[in-house]
Design a protein around this nucleic acid. Structure first.
Lengths: 229, 229
DNA sequence: TTGACTCTCAAACAAACGTTTCATACAGTT
DNA sequence: AACTGTATGAAACGTTTGTTTGAGAGTCAA
């Protein structure tokens, strides 16, 4: 039997992406991929050289999708004041990563890649994360009226990104909270929450007003407990 | 040759904890653990039943250490006003997770567990994460003058926790930023940053002041971009 | 000394793994 | 019809995997 010229190849990619995302590179076997896809075991080696070649192909596909998300989130706020840029970015980003079933496998794959560093994590950093961080740093710097490489900016960007990622569904979050609700309105509310929280946090860094009502005096009293183990 | 009564067992645990944390359950072989520990291959099966038994033992050790961190972070702020409680919690927590070389393997193991859900992730959720979330929820609810199960509280707690975790060193963060500096002063500054950022964010949820200058009008204009792919 | 018990060791086991092989089937070209 | 290049199939390959085995070394008590 012959399936067609590229049918097998795409079937394998589709199945493998889902399986790699949910269980990782090592735990998924070539046999399982091929059985699920309904193709022969040799298909992977024929079309992709070997198992790692298949994984790399999927990783590149994920990177491309993430780049598109970056671009869309950037365009959504183009020409607006910085706080609106941030709001637009968070909104698009959260919609895609938290809500979209279409992109959920990417987040799983990435969280695994961070822990496993199986293959080229550098590709993800250079083509996705660094540009994204740079864009957000520009926004934050504008709000704070300071340079993009200011220590406060770098930290604030990390905080904003971490908050967006904190709400992507995973085995832990689904166990901690009943359900976050995937309806567009709920996601909008979530995005607005993150934006409001972050904007207030960023602005607090301007004067350090909320930072320390009792700036230094407390420190010595709690210090002893930290080292305890 | 005989090493001693419990020497082998502890050597295996020590080596395996490090290896599992850095490369995951499936990728680490029993042979490698035993070779590194300088013991026989059969030692794992003799002392722990099988490979999974060894892994579970290590996981329980990690859970116990995390519970201690929770406790220490809670005690550090006992009897203080809520914002000081939060500050104390973040300070202890960040010191242990971000700076301490002693606890770094735990974070690696957990981030892997979230992605892999190899074994009892429920144990971690029930005994560590849920109590921690509940404690933080109490603090936030006190600041916001509302119930602990308010939607804003749940979200704010998630945001605070995500910010703390965002600064634990991992392959991505070390590639994005040159170095966060592990000196106690730098960690103190980081903890203070997170606290200031979070407190401002939480307080912004009281009135929704910073939340939406242009509450709803913008939504329709950006909506089209979200779905784009 | 004897016996029971705990622990370690080298060797081997069966299963699962990624990969290779080779025959064969199809489509397009000459 | 004959040839060529591409794709698929069933079977097998050599390795690595977690685990088991059985002999033996060490310790303690009687």
């Amino acid at each position: 039997m012959k399936k067609g010229d590229r049918v097998t190849r795409e079937r394998v990619v589709s199945v493998a992406a889902r399986l790699f995302a949910s269980r990782g590179f090592k735990k998924v076997t070539v046999r399982e991929i091929c059985r699920t896809a309904g193709v022969n075991v040799a298909a992977v080696n024929y079309h992709f050289g070997n198992k790692l070649g298949l994984y790399r192909g999927i990783l590149e596909k994920a990177v491309e999708a993430m780049r598109e998300t970056n671009e869309a989130a950037r365009l959504a706020g183009e020409g607006r004041p910085p706080d609106q840029k941030l709001r637009a970015f968070v909104r698009v980003y959260v919609h895609r990563t938290v809500a979209s079933r279409q992109h959920s496998w990417i987040q799983s794959l990435m969280s695994r890649e961070i822990a496993d560093r199986t293959a080229a994590i550098d590709l993800v950093v250079e083509r996705v994360l660094r540009p994204r961080a740079a864009y957000l740093a520009g926004i934050v710097a504008e709000i704070l009226h300071c340079a993009s490489d200011d220590e406060r900016v770098v930290r604030a960007v990390t905080c904003v990104q971490s908050q967006c990622l904190a709400f992507v569904p995973n085995p832990v979050s689904s166990r901690l909270h009943p359900d976050l609700g995937g309806t567009p309105d709920a996601v909008d509310a979530l995005a607005e929450h993150i934006t409001a929280f972050s904007l207030a946090g960023i602005r607090a860094l301007r004067t350090g007003r909320a930072a320390a009502r009792r700036p230094r005096a407390r420190r010595r009293r709690t210090q002893g407990r930290v080292a305890g183990r």
